[in-house]
């Protein structure tokens, strides 16, 4: 893993209104096959992607919110959610899906994937990445 690059996918758009959210998710899933060190960040309207209870049956679009739960299977375990963006929108962590990954080294113990960070903390995370992808 030492020569793996640190890939960060930055998600800043609401789901369904535009195609960015789903496109990002697909790229992340495809990219995960290349065994890089992948992180996701959700900020601005991107935090809306992770809300629970989404039901698209009335708008004739695919509900891809369950797919975020598969990220753990793809070894994507670092999901940063920006605190300021949540608060601005009247949301808390409780409004978001509970995303977990299983730690094989600890007998498949379930661990939280979502890390709530301030904008300043997120800036540090971004500074430590090798490649940034924006959606």
């Amino acid at each position: 893993m030492s020569d793996a690059k640190k890939f960060m996918y930055i998600n800043r758009k609401a789901p369904y209104g535009t195609i960015y959210a789903w496109e990002s998710l697909e790229v992340v899933l495809i990219g995960a096959a290349f065994e890089q060190d992948v992180s996701l960040a959700f900020m601005d309207d991107g935090v809306y992607q992770l809300t629970k209870g989404q039901d698209t049956s009335g708008i004739g679009m695919k509900n891809f919110s369950p797919t975020y739960s598969a990220l753990g299977d793809y070894e994507v375990s670092k999901i940063y959610v920006e605190k300021e963006s949540l608060e601005e929108r009247g949301l808390t962590l409780d409004d978001l899906q509970h995303l977990v990954w299983e730690d094989e080294d600890e007998d498949y113990a379930e661990k939280d994937s979502i890390r709530l960070v301030s904008r300043a903390e997120l800036a540090d995370v971004l500074a430590g990445q090798d490649v940034l992808f924006n959606f």
């Binding site: 899933l29 995960a32 096959a33 695919k62 509900n63 891809f64 369950p66 797919t67 739960s69 598969a70 299977d73 793809y74």
Partner: peptide
């Protein structure tokens, strides 16, 4: 999950 998993997964 609304996706078909990759082979590795």
């Amino acid at each position: 999950y609304q996706i078909a998993p990759a082979v590795r997964v």
